[in-house]
Design a binder for these strands. Sequence first.
DNA 1: AGTCATAAATGACCGTGGTCATATTTAAGC
DNA 2: GCTTAAATATGACCACGGTCATTTATGACT
Lengths: 203, 203
Amino acid sequence: MSLREQKKKETRNRIFEISLRLFKEKGFEGTTVDEITKEAGIAKGTFFNYFPTKESLLSYFREQREEFIISIMQDQMSREIPVREKIENFLVHVAEYYEKDRYLLRLLFFEQRRLLMSSGHRPSQGDHRKKKQELFIGMLADLSSEGMQKGEIRSDIDPKLIAQTLHAVYFHSLMSWLHSEIDYSFSKDMSAKIDIIFEGIGV
Amino acid sequence: MSLREQKKKETRNRIFEISLRLFKEKGFEGTTVDEITKEAGIAKGTFFNYFPTKESLLSYFREQREEFIISIMQDQMSREIPVREKIENFLVHVAEYYEKDRYLLRLLFFEQRRLLMSSGHRPSQGDHRKKKQELFIGMLADLSSEGMQKGEIRSDIDPKLIAQTLHAVYFHSLMSWLHSEIDYSFSKDMSAKIDIIFEGIGV
DNA sequence: AGTCATAAATGACCGTGGTCATATTTAAGC
DNA sequence: GCTTAAATATGACCACGGTCATTTATGACT
């Protein structure tokens, strides 16, 4: 790696680290780009050579999280355990991972303008790059299919529908937890709701 | 009502109507407060006498929606039909109501900084005013309890948990629909997922 | 080492949301 | 109709996010 690339990487990283620290200290709105650049020892314009907007710092943070989450998913996918356990394990692992950094997650979901969610209903035309969220639901759908083949899950429902329902519960639990001011286990709360989906509420 | 109050109300309304129109025409970011005040024939400062921020226009819009939704809820609550039907009716009615104005809802959810969601996990101390979202979940919980008493719903689960799970599916379906670029029936999509919750996915 | 094209850094500048001291309007009391 | 205090309107002003023409640093090539 050339000196140039090296320095670029370092600068980008410095901006990012300083930003997250300041966000934690003073909030997202309360931190100005001027402060960030001053601390990083660069001019204001330079910031925008590295990140197109102040908000994009949060996107970058999210991308890093997503990489990690996908690795958790893939770990679970390959294990030799009942599908229900795989699903619960996966979701609980993600939840536990999130529990470590509630504050920055709050920023991520409440400060970022467009919080991406998977639609499950894509336009048939369009770019073919899979978004991370779709991968998330896609993997849950794969697990559901696997469960159907093994006779662990009802096979008269569209696996995608099941995946979306699971994801709904996961997402809702996450949001509730982020909004709440009290401390409780997000993963346990979610786990209870996943059980409902498996067992149904009907008599 | 005095002349003063009358004019105040009119001005507030004019600002609001013009704003929503401009948002539809040019988007939220694309519309400036200057434009709004110019069209409304008032000075810029006056705008902020009526709405504390530009974003608060969206909150106001949401409050209006919420009033309406609560009335739908209350209608269903008092009918003499099976609980499952009440729940489905209620959620489907809300969905159908939303389907009428997808664009402004998108603004509401994607442009507004902090999109409120019910936690279901409130701090024990704090203000006692019930937020609208809690009312929403509260009513779903009441319906669940009713269903348990009538033997239509399993009674070994906390009704609140059921309510939250139902709300999760409702909210997720709504968000997916708002994100999607294609036209499909949000209410039907949601309905299918509600069925899953009633019947479970286990064998 | 010197030249030069390209990458990267810079900060004056702009448009916007939001503030606030001041000016204007209202209506109650006389 | 006049006075006066409170409600309301005003626009100059500020801070911030973001742009861009210009300057500076880099390294490939001779």
